[in-house]
Design a protein around this nucleic acid. Structure first.
Length: 621
DNA sequence: ATTAGGG
DNA sequence: CCCTAAT
């Protein structure tokens, strides 16, 4: 823990602040670090705390294997060790979910209705303002060379690489624009399917959420009220006293939240702590009443959430709560980027998901030229298109040479908005590129609510552009493209197979991959075959079907790297489907359980076929 | 035109 | 992903 403190201590010391930093309690620092970091990954680490259960150890479970792998990787990085220790050693934590999340989560609705969206949007406008203010403060403070980056700012930047790594997100080298990110994020709204999977399997995926009984009630606001009465100047002063440094953020709400948070941390680290008189002389002697540690979870977290939550990479393999969180995250982005149509999962059922997928094809306007790039993947199947955290880790966490500039925050843009998903981001960039170059109308396309126009534009222009754009053609590789299957796509495929069965690839293509011009029916078939293999492999080699993946398990298995990114929930589903729908109607392979028994007579084959048809009609997922 | 399957 | 045979 000592080293952890040292590390954190260092991070706190911006040039101007180093003198003041000595006033700070190390526990406080660490807690803040923890909070900040977890503020970013709060959705992934289910470290919720019940408001009546103070300091109850919140088990850390992962909703998916992918998440677990992300943490595994984190474990493996020595530079991150201290952080991780802190993450895991602290068994007290607050909930970083904003209130709206909780409300939504408690609602049992699995489909986000329009009114929900509106409500979310309304609720977020304020938070957005806060966030912008905060980021303004950050960039201004830095640009003007005041070195007035607050510790939060500093840590925000500092922790980003870790968080990104955790979330399997990379920083774009050439600083993607907001458009890049929104385009990227807008692709990942496919959350409903997983819920179906989860529900259909009646399984708990280890989402360990302690009940947050009635979100905010009476006492919760005690401390907050105290701050609310203060002027901004006063708040700044309190902030300085509390955190031992100044902050460049003048937003009152933000300050309020930080203050509450500070109190909470004080409570955590020292039950008997009360503020120095100087900080709150306006009130009485006794200083601020220390709120119970559990109390202000929601209040405290709101501001952080507005800043951090949207940095969480939406992940399709989450369960239950997933869509609500996702939608909020999306909302943050979308409201920042203008109105973006999101991919409504429920539309998959009926329509052909025209709208949503348009954006998946990257036909997003206004992408600045310099940020577009289309790196042809050379050397066959390029394993990774990104540079793993190493680059940032050395700078971001090292003892020296840390600069905000190493992450290059574009003014006014939060870090998240320069993120890009590793998976398939390259081809998205490619598509964005050609969309930018060749299809001016894509601008309207994105806003086209009917989705028809956009569908057209993306479908028509893409094929040839792909040919043109991919320099691999005619050179080394004759491959059309090397586009990895995203989890989203896999889920779609699974959904398609669920609906149509195995073999009707063109139908699946029509219904689920209409706008995925680069996924031919044959590709779907190939992918399904690979999925089957993967699911079988997974079964024999890896652990069975367990709910969540516990951290302790992870530590042991941290050597395992580069394993499939496909969530094992999905693979299990694949297996189920494989039983229902034998891979081939004709040449049944080892995958079908009845294959070995059945001789390849036509009668058998036909009966099997009819059974499949039955299943298709009855099993509707 | 689609699909299965090998490579 | 590509290619080809078989429908």
């Amino acid at each position: 823990m000592q080293t952890t403190m040292d590390l954190f201590e260092y991070n706190w010391k911006t040039p101007n602040e180093s003198a003041k930093s000595s006033q700070r309690e190390p526990e406080q620092t660490a807690l803040l670090c923890f909070y900040l970091s977890r503020g970013s990954i709060g959705n992934n680490l289910f470290t919720f705390q019940g408001r009546d259960k103070v300091a109850s150890a919140a088990s850390i479970y992962f909703a998916s294997e992918e998440e677990a792998i992300g943490v595994e990787q984190l474990f493996a990085e020595p530079e991150y060790g201290d952080i991780v220790d802190t993450l895991l050693d602290f068994n007290t934590c607050a909930c970083s979910l904003p209130e709206s999340y909780i409300k939504e989560f408690s609602a049992s609705e699995s489909v986000v209705t329009n009114s929900d969206r509106d409500a979310v949007q309304r609720g977020l406008s304020e938070e957005d303002k806060t966030r912008e203010k905060f980021l303004d403060g950050l960039s201004n403070g830095y640009n003007e060379n005041h070195c007035s980056i607050s510790c939060e700012d500093y840590l925000l930047v500092n922790f980003s690489p870790i968080i990104l790594d955790l979330l399997d997100i990379e920083l774009e080298e050439e600083t993607p624009t907001l458009d890049d990110v929104t385009r990227d994020i807008s692709c990942i709204g496919n959350v409903n399917l997983e819920n179906k999977l989860a529900d259909s399997e009646q399984r708990n995926y280890g989402v360990h959420v302690l009940k947050l009984s009635d979100a905010s009630t009476s006492s919760d606001h005690d401390a907050l009220d105290e701050f609310e009465d203060m002027s901004t100047d006063k708040l700044l002063e309190v902030f300085r006293n509390m955190f031992g440094h100044q902050t460049s953020v003048a937003d009152k709400q933000w300050l309020d939240s930080h203050m509450i948070f500070g109190l909470e941390n004080q409570e955590m680290s020292d039950k008997n702590y009360s503020f120095p008189k100087s900080s709150l002389d306006s009130s009485e002697n006794q200083g601020v009443k220390v709120p119970p540690a559990c109390l202000n979870l929601l209040t405290v977290s709101t501001a952080f959430a507005s800043i951090f939550n949207f940095r969480t990479k939406p992940r399709v393999q989450h369960v239950k709560r997933r869509e609500h969180i996702q939608w909020n995250s999306f909302k943050c982005i979308s409201s920042a980027a203008g109105d973006i149509l999101l991919d409504f999962p429920d539309k998959w059922e009926s329509k052909e998901l025209a709208k949503g997928n348009v954006k998946c094809d990257g036909t997003k306007l206004g992408i600045s030229e310099q940020n577009l790039k289309c790196k042809p993947s050379r050397g066959g199947f390029g394993r990774r298109y990104y540079h793993r955290g190493a680059k940032v880790s050395s700078q971001g966490l090292g003892k020296r040479n840390f600069q905000v500039g190493c992450i290059q925050i574009p003014p006014g843009l939060p870090i998240e908005e320069r993120l890009i998903r590793r998976e398939g981001h390259l081809s998205k960039d490619c598509r964005a590129n050609r969309a930018y170059n060749g299809n001016i109308h894509s601008a309207e396309a994105l806003d086209d609510p009917s989705g028809t126009l956009s569908d057209q534009s993306s479908d028509n222009s893409s094929e040839e552009d792909w040919t043109i754009g991919s320099e691999t053609r005619g050179t080394n590789q004759d491959r059309k493209h090397n586009k990895y299957w995203s989890t989203t796509e896999v889920l779609k495929l699974v959904e398609g197979v669920s609906k149509y069965g195995v073999g009707r690839w063109s139908d699946i293509k029509r219904m689920f991959f209409q706008s995925h011009v680069h996924r031919s029916p044959a590709d779907l078939k190939d992918k399904w075959r690979n999925l089957l293999r993967a699911s079988c492999r997974r079964l024999q080699s890896r652990r069975g079907v367990t709910g969540g993946t516990n951290v302790t398990v992870l530590v042991d298995a941290k050597k395992k790297r580069g394993v499939s990114r496909i969530p094992y929930e999905v693979l299990n589903r694949v297996r189920e489907l494989a039983v229902i729908y034998p891979y081939s109607r004709k040449h049944r392979t080892r995958i079908s359980p009845t294959a070995s028994l059945a001789s390849s007579s036509n009668v058998e084959s036909d009966s099997q076929l009819s059974m499949n048809e039955q299943n298709t009609s009855t099993l509707t997922y």
